[in-house]
Design a protein around this nucleic acid. Structure first.
Lengths: 206, 206
DNA sequence: AGGGTTTTGTTTAATAATTAACAATTAAAT
DNA sequence: ATTTAATTGTTAATTATTAAACAAAACCCT
């Protein structure tokens, strides 16, 4: 890939795209930077800067062409060949994410679920095959899964992570409360509910 | 409150505390900055700086006294009188969060759940009363709820937010895919699964 | 007791992210 | 056709965050 975009810019681009896709329904072909900004509680300058960084240009006095901008963001965020994803642990959270993802991002292919519960494994849930964790390594390789969403109980978080990394997973979203240890070249995104909630609690008081 | 801590520091303090609480089991009374750092994939300097910012001091050559450090972090993160929280929308995600939170942070009091489903309302779920959304404003005031976790379907996200803010909620965690509009003085934390996943997908490829 | 080593606390430097400033362009108005 | 207002694209300044550097204290060893 070309040069790395700032982390925050990547986040915002994803958010812009989502908003823009909904915006298509409005019937308007163009959108101004300040409109997009208002929809995300940030500034027009920030929006323009982000868009500048991906090399897309709007037209002055008219704004950005919505469809083109969606495509331009896709060119940066999406792998043209798609990326395969698995959810490891199909409890409440795993199930929620499963529904959430369903049909949302065409470039991200949810290929497999894993669980220990024999009730859940050996069949499809919501159209996605659910395998027993014993098959984890083999199935990750089979489906060429590069990204895993970890929603297992905390007791098994670390060992499961080791298995995943060993099997070739390069990106991890950790929903457990256990800090994980991964090699340099594995991208780890911590996603801790309690931390976020405590952050909100702190800034509400300050 | 005293001076505002950096956002990132607040996040890390929350993570440190969680780790430290688990660390109590190890039987060791002290912990070094580099040990805490290793557990969080960051550096010893960062840990020391964070701890410095909350005004706690370790002892040289021995590290930080675990129990004291936990208390010191609590003094910064926790409101001594506690803060009341509600989950709005008891679907898979809401339920997951409900279980997740259960008994985890004593300073955060989960006081109420809200849903439209008559199956769920009018009783307690996991020990927390679940009210119909019609009672939202009244119950928020009754329980003095300052923080809301928004896990409703996207169609009703914005109107629900308006109700919450109107009723006095000062902090919001938004799990929906809808960008929300809140007044200046309401702290809004966006928590979008797809954005995070796309971020992982991007940095895995780069 | 004294020298060497470890680890903290703090200051300074570097990097990343945001905001401000403003030139350039274009559409609309007269 | 000229002016005016609106809007983008980009550079420069500011602020926030992370990392480096190093002095000071405390322990250990002989």
């Amino acid at each position: 890939m070309k040069k790395k975009l700032p982390r925050k810019t990547v986040e915002r681009l994803s958010e812009y795209r989502r908003t823009l896709i909904n915006y298509l329904d409005s019937g308007r072909d163009y959108i101004f930077s300040h409109e997009l900004a208002d929809m995300h509680n940030n500034t027009a300058v920030q929006v323009r800067r982000d868009i500048m960084l991906i090399g897309y240009s709007g037209v002055q006095r008219r704004g950005y062409k919505v469809k083109e901008l969606i495509r331009a963001i896709g060119k940066v965020l999406d792998d043209p060949r798609g990326q395969n994803v698995a959810i490891v642990g199909v409890g409440h959270l795993g199930t929620a994410i499963l529904h959430y993802l369903k049909g949302k991002r065409p470039a991200l292919h949810l290929k497999a679920l894993f669980d220990i519960d024999k009730e859940k494994t050996g069949r499809e849930i919501n159209g996605i095959p659910c395998y027993p964790v014993e098959e984890l390594a083999a199935r990750v390789r089979e489906h060429k899964i590069g990204i895993a969403i970890l929603t297992v109980p905390m007791e098994v978080a670390r060992e499961t992570t080791a298995l995943l990394v060993e099997a070739g997973v390069r990106g991890l979203m950790n929903f457990t409360t256990v800090p994980l240890d991964v090699p340099e070249d594995v991208f780890l995104e911590e996603y801790d509910l309690i931390t976020s909630l405590e952050k909100v609690a702190y800034f509400v008081r300050i």
